[in-house]
């Protein structure tokens, strides 16, 4: 990702090299991150099977998957600032896992909307995409997320070349704002929750703008 490339600190050097954590500890930390990302899905699945999704379970399922997708996208965007501010450059290695989990949640969100909510009524889906701005934006964000997920492997970075790969992955700065707008537009009256996400996003993007000017 572009952030990593331009990081104002050595990505694998400096202090990190001096006291590199043990392989076992590294794996444990990675497992913890993986489990943390999967936990909301496991919890949702458990609630679904025990009939604990409330009075309108389909709505709860679709919304929860969407909200977790958005949260993980924001966590993904928070990694680079966190790595720089905390001087923990190796945090960046979690970006791919978190991004792919975000993609998984967003995909399930879309799938549950099409398969469970609309029950594969593709005519209605098409009408929704054309007529409902919040669905138009959500679909646009998903479509852009697909190539990022596909090219997330090391092989693709090499095949595309670092620069082109970074340019493609710059799309995340379009996708996440679209995701927040998607949420904002579906809310009936209480806009506070989507505005909280918008605020966090503004800070994460603002930090990047600030850094670009500050390190010039």
């Amino acid at each position: 990702m572009k952030d990593a490339e331009k990081a104002p600190f050595p990505l694998d050097g400096g202090r990190a090299r001096k006291k590199r954590p043990s392989k076992t500890r590294d794996n444990l930390v990675y497992a913890a991150v993986w489990l943390a990302c999967a936990a909301p899905l496991v919890w949702l699945a458990f609630r679904a099977f025990t009939g604990d999704l409330g009075v309108n379970p389909i709505e709860t399922l679709v919304r929860q998957l969407g909200v977790w997708g958005l949260r993980l996208l924001l966590v993904g965007l928070a990694i680079t600032p966190a790595a720089a501010i905390l001087r923990k450059p190796r945090l960046v290695r979690f970006q791919r896992t978190i991004g792919l989990f975000a993609f998984a949640y967003v995909s399930l969100h879309l799938l549950s909307y099409i398969g469970v909510d609309l029950y594969f009524d593709f005519g209605q889906l098409w009408k929704d995409i054309l007529k409902r701005p919040f669905i138009t934006l959500g679909m646009a964000a998903f479509v852009m997320l697909v190539p990022l997920a596909v090219t997330s492997t090391n092989g693709w970075v090499i095949r595309m070349g670092r620069a082109a790969w970074s340019r493609l992955h710059w799309l995340i700065y379009v996708i996440v704002p679209l995701g927040v707008a998607h949420y904002y537009l579906l809310v009936k009256a209480d806009h506070r929750p989507p505005l909280v996400y918008a605020g966090i996003l503004a800070v994460l993007l603002g930090w990047r703008v600030w850094r670009r000017f500050a390190t010039r």
Partner: peptide
């Protein structure tokens, strides 16, 4: 007549699976 942001053509009866 749709709500500007969503369709009013169908509804989910609470307790039912299909719209």
């Amino acid at each position: 007549v749709d709500h500007p942001r969503w369709s009013q053509a169908t509804e989910r009866r609470i307790g039912e699976f299909r719209r």
